[in-house]
Every structure is written in structure tokens, then in C-alpha cells.
Design a protein around this nucleic acid. Structure first.
Lengths: 263, 263
DNA sequence: GAAACGAGTTTCATTATTTGGAACCTGTTG
DNA sequence: CAACAGGTTCCAAATAATGAAACTCGTTTC
């Protein structure tokens, strides 16, 4: 039913269940009725009811009395504000992204890895002005995006295997890698080469070149990509930007390193 | 110690406690150590430890092994993406804000009420490009901001009283209203007049004019403000924008009304 | 207009989870 | 090397979550 990756393995207690419900509501992308959630969940009526009550009570969900629907609550927006500022690369990387976007004239994505999935934390659309949350916070698959593969390639063995296992391997296009083995092989190539490509593996006509952002100790902290469409640019065109991309990735890594919070 | 408003009255069960801890970490605004949290909380060591474990496990917190610190996790960013799109006025209001910002050439804020506090969901800075989460998600006090007072003024009796009770009444400036009675009186005036003002009540030199955004049934769904500084504009200058402000508020209300999700 | 229905809410004895004091690690400091 | 501080784990007692069933209340059906 859901071609996305499963995320929370084991439920840790009540909190885990509550957050699972929260995700369920959020994933819907629109206000949901109690019964709709009930149909999808394994929890009995009363349990689901109380979980929703608690979450609503806490402002994590908003309940529309008129329509009898639940939607993600504003408290999340408040919390995310902190999360974005602290745990994401975005604030630090902003200036570098801007510079790169202007230089290459293509769309730049900044992403981080969240449980095997790609979480876009910033986007720069050379031409148009920035779109807020409409882009930051979006998630995408790890196995068929440039940034996803770039980050996975540089994980250590355990985490890498874990990430490989979490993928959904849905064939979005004829070029999509659809087996763990194929992905693993591609990751090896990427690690050797230093950059990854999306060869229309996610959406037809969309290609990109991506590079990981690595800390001085070699840990993956994010990735950066230059995206374009086959109608605008050839693959060779992207290749031209390789140096600038790698340079920017390094710059961001450096900035992130030095800008650790004052303790 | 904390001059802000208390938010979650009673703890609902384990989930409530976990979210309380989450807030605590988020409010710090920087990575925190276990012991630092322990010192502030009433929970015993073991309990706090397990709550943090659970939250980290779930991706609501991120744990930095090297530094042994906790920070809000990326899962929040993902969730907030949904929340912002669904529960906030921002996506609908965007075009109207842009138009208004260009017309008046001042900073525009769009806010909603979250438990007596003002939550800014969008901002338009006529001149500069938009800053992402750095503005959206920010919270402010209700009793001494234009948008806060505008929203409170149009709540129904119960909610209004509740909101009045939740305020901290800290005297940020000599003009700040510091008693529930003074605030109530001001709210009456605002309700009669239709717009509210911030007369340097929050920050010296900063003034604004704000209007509520009301649904067709009269429910408060948000507020809108035009902000400037005394050095740039007089009070009368702001007054000039009253009509445009009210007009925009109405337009947004209309747009929000018709753009309810397809059920 | 009564009866059946569907969606949501509450009850209560049972069961499973959370609790927290204290003991236990483990790397640091005097 | 002993004392220590910041973390982590144990386990019996206390508490909170569970879920089948009963109950509202507003609709639809006969």
C-alpha cells in the first residue's frame, strides 16, 4: 500500500505509539477523520482515541471540531524552528548555497539523511525566490536520488547496510536501481569517485550531480546537489560543475565544523 | 527563572512527559547535556534518561556522541513540513503577503495563536529575500505584540480569558501592558476598532499595526501586521496602511475559507 | 415515528509499562 | 590510586495503558 520505507522499527512504549500516530496523520497530507485512521491502524478504537486525545491536548495535533478532523498541530512548527536551526546544516550552509546557485544557474538542494531517507533541509532555485517549508522538510527516497546515494556511500559499514535495508526499491523509472546489490555496487563506485549522479533514476528527465558533505573525521553530515533537466542540460554540462560542487561541499563542511555552538 | 508563559498544564501520561522534555531541549536553543536537563527537571535521573533515549530513538532528538549532547531532531523538520502546509495559513496567504509587502514597503508578519502565544508562520521583508525557518516557527508574547492583541481581542469569552491568564506580563518597555485588566481593556478597544497597535510595547522603537483574520463564522484564524520602526515612520504613517491591511486580512480569510482540503 | 445504524466517547477490571532509589560502570581529576 | 562526576542499568512497587463492551447522540432506513 505504501511504497515508502518503514521507519520506526520497534515501538518504544507509549511514546513510540503516539509518534507513530502522529506520523500517520502527517503523512496523509490532509486533515483526517478518526475512522480513517482507525481503519489503518492496528490499535483498538479506544487506544487510538486516547492517543489522539493526548496528542491534540499537547498541541501536536490540531482538531477541527466542525469537520471532525485531525491535522498536524502548530506546536510542531515551533519545535521545528529549533530543530532546523540547531540540527540542520541549512543555517550554516545558506551563504554557500546562494553563491553556488548564482554561479551555476541551476537548482541546488541541501539534504541530510534521516533513517535511510533523504530529508531536504534547504533549496535554492537560482531564478525564483525561495519557497519556505514547501521545500525544506520534504523527504525523498535514498536509493534513487543523487544526494541519497552520495550520503549512503560514505556511511560506515553498519550504517550503510542499515540504510540499504531500509530502501523501498520501487522502480520509479527504467533507470532506477531496484536491488540492494545493485545499490551497493553503485555506492562503491560513488565512494571511489567522490560524487554521485542521478541518471533519471527518480523522475524521467531529471538529472543531477551530488556530493557528500563530510566532517573532518569523515562522518557524513549531509549532501549537496545540482539538479537540472535533460531538456536544459546534457550530462556533460553537469560534469562541468563538478569542481564547484566539491568545493562548496568542502566549504560547508569547514563552516559546520567551526560553527559548533558555544558550550 | 523563565519569564515565558507556562504551556502544558497537566501532564497527560508518558507522552506528555516526553513532549515536555522535548520542549525543554528545544527551548534551550543549543545542544544540551544530560546533566543540564537533569538539573532543571523534576524527573529522577533514570526516568529522564529513558525519556531521552526514547525520543532519540524516534528521531525527535538527535544525540551527538562526541559531545554528549542532545538537540532537536530532524524528524521534527519532516513533521513540521506537514504541519506548516496543513495547519498554517501561510501557504494560502503567501501571495497576499507578497502583494501587501510590495505595496507598503514594510515588513509583514503573519501569525497564529498557539496557547496564548503568538506563533509567526510567515514573514515578508519587503526589501530582502525571505529567511526560512529563521522566522517561521518563532514564538512571541501575546500581550505585547500587535498580532497577539489582535487575535486575543476577537476570541470568544472563554478562550479570551484563558489567553489573558496565560500571559507573562513582563514589562519589556515602559509602554508594555502589565496587568490582565489593562490588557482586557485594550482588547475591548481593539475589538471595537478592528485593528490593534503595538506602541513600542515589546521593543523600544518598534511599532506596528495589526489586524485579525477572521473566518466567516467569526472565529479567529490568524493575524497580520505591518511593522516598522519609529526612526523610519511615524505612527500616522502606519495609519495610512490601515485600509490595505484590513483588505488583505479579508482576502486571506476568503482564500482560507474556500481552500479547505478536498475531503 | 420507531428501529437500526454509524461514528465517536466512556467505563472498568486486567495487564503491561513506567517508575525511581540504589547499585554499577567508566573515564577524569586531585 | 582513590575519589568523583556524568552516565547507564536493575528490579520490585506503583502507575498508566489496554481493549472489549456498553453507551451516546445524531442520521438514515423501514
Amino acid at each position: 500500500m505504501n511504497s515508502q520505507v518503514r521507519q520506526q522499527g520497534g515501538a518504544d512504549g507509549t511514546v513510540g505509539k503516539a509518534l507513530e500516530v502522529l506520523d500517520q496523520v502527517a503523512d496523509k497530507g490532509r486533515p483526517v477523520r478518526f475512522s480513517e485512521l482507525l481503519a489503518e491502524t492496528s490499535h483498538p478504537k479506544a487506544t487510538l482515541y486516547r492517543l489522539l486525545q493526548t496528542l491534540t491536548n499537547q498541541g501536536m495535533l490540531a482538531y477541527d471540531e466542525d469537520r471532525q478532523t485531525y491535522a498536524p498541530g502548530l506546536r510542531l512548527v515551533r519545535l521545528a524552528h529549533s530543530a532546523w536551526r540547531q540540527s540542520s546544516l541549512a543555517p550554516v550552509a545558506r551563504p554557500y548555497l546562494t553563491a553556488l546557485a548564482q554561479k551555476v544557474g541551476e537548482t541546488i538542494h541541501l539534504a541530510q539523511l534521516d533513517r535511510g531517507q533523504v530529508l531536504y533541509v534547504d533549496k535554492m532555485n537560482a531564478a525564483e525566490p525561495i519557497e519556505m517549508f514547501s521545500q525544506a522538510g520534504k523527504v525523498g527516497p535514498g536509493y534513487c536520488t543523487g544526494v541519497g546515494k552520495a550520503m549512503m556511500a560514505f556511511l560506515d559499514a553498519d550504517d550503510r547496510q542499515d540504510a540499504i535495508n531500509r530502501q523501498a526499491y520501487f522502480a520509479h523509472t527504467p533507470n532506477t536501481l531496484t536491488t540492494p546489490d545493485a545499490l551497493a555496487a553503485e555506492l562503491d563506485r560513488i565512494k571511489a569517485e567522490g560524487v554521485s549522479y542521478d541518471r533519471e533514476e527518480h523522475e524521467p528527465g531529471i538529472i543531477c550531480i551530488a556530493a557528500p558533505i563530510l566532517s573532518s573525521t569523515g562522518r557524513v553530515i549531509g549532501a549537496l546537489s545540482i539538479t537540472t533537466s535533460t531538456s536544459r542540460q546534457s550530462f556533460d554540462g553537469l560534469e562541468q560543475h563538478r569542481a564547484a560542487l566539491l568545493r562548496t561541499a568542502q566549504d560547508i563542511a569547514g563552516a559546520a565544523e567551526s560553527w559548533q555552538f558555544p558550550t
